[in-house]
Design a protein around this nucleic acid. Structure first.
Lengths: 145, 145
DNA sequence: CAAAATCTATTTGTATACTAATGAATTTTA
DNA sequence: TAAAATTCATTAGTATACAAATAGATTTTG
């Protein structure tokens, strides 16, 4: 038995057992499932589009807040969605700072066509859990926000 | 009551209730906690360093596999750690394809000094849960890998 | 009202993360 | 053993993510 310096420290910290590491791996798996079911949109793009369709419209920053993206991130997301004609933006007449964002007809159509696969993504992500476990898991995960 | 097109679709998909979205937000919270406790390393840099100290040494791709990073990602991480003198790399003599990676003394020291804050990161991340809930949560989350 | 504070969007810079393509080295297999 | 397949590392390209700085617009407050 060769007891190296590493081994003595190893007991103190096992990466594979840490929440953060497991959380990251679970996210990676989910992202993979998402990409296979909805290849035409990234999860963040879909989130922005979904929230936009839910709200009707919003300023860029407001939309970012509602989808957990900071100002810099949501800007890039909206830029890419606009470049593809899925959303449209106009300066807010009542507040010259604000950029008013709206889903286009094409954007709403795409969103509508993604609802079913989106539900399947959720289903597939939670597939390893029983119905009871899913409820418990979502309840506990929601406490960590 | 103005019933817009959005509202009729809204019932079908509530972003804020989807696993993926909650998972992303929980990760964001964890990342924030990590950054506040260990500002000198990113979670992935720390993961690579921790696994390296655990294994003793490994090839770059092997290390990536053990830390859930693909070849392109682990390359960047190792490059940055090397630039800071926390790891050292040498061509593997037995396999000219492999890049042998090792933590330096400085890297091992930094890792050792991060173990306690790292445990506090885990603690703070799970703080909203009771002891029972933590066990249950980790058990369920681990099924989603 | 005017100054201070806040909000909005943008830009720059750094760091994951993944895809796809490449070339070199090694292993497999036919 | 020679060809095929695989592995390893690198590179280029795209897309989050966040920090920090900036400038303009609006709101708050003294």
């Amino acid at each position: 038995m060769s007891d190296t310096q590493q081994n003595s420290v190893q007991q103190d910290y096992i990466l594979d057992e840490q929440v953060g590491f497991i959380l990251r791996r679970a996210s990676q798996r989910h992202l993979g499932i998402f990409a296979s079911r909805i290849p035409e949109l990234t999860p963040t793009q879909f989130a922005a589009l979904a929230k936009l369709c839910e709200l009707g419209a919003a300023s860029q920053n407001e939309l970012g807040r509602r989808t957990a993206m900071d100002a810099a991130t949501i800007k890039g997301v909206i830029d890419r969605l606009r470049k593809r004609g899925l959303v449209a933006t106009v300066k807010d007449a009542n507040d010259q700072r604000r950029l008013f964002v709206q889903a286009t007809a094409e954007g709403e159509e795409l969103f509508a066509s993604c609802i079913e696969p989106a539900h399947m993504i959720t289903e597939e992500t939670l597939a390893p859990l029983s119905e009871k476990e899913r409820l418990m898991f979502l309840q506990l995960l929601s406490k960590l926000l």
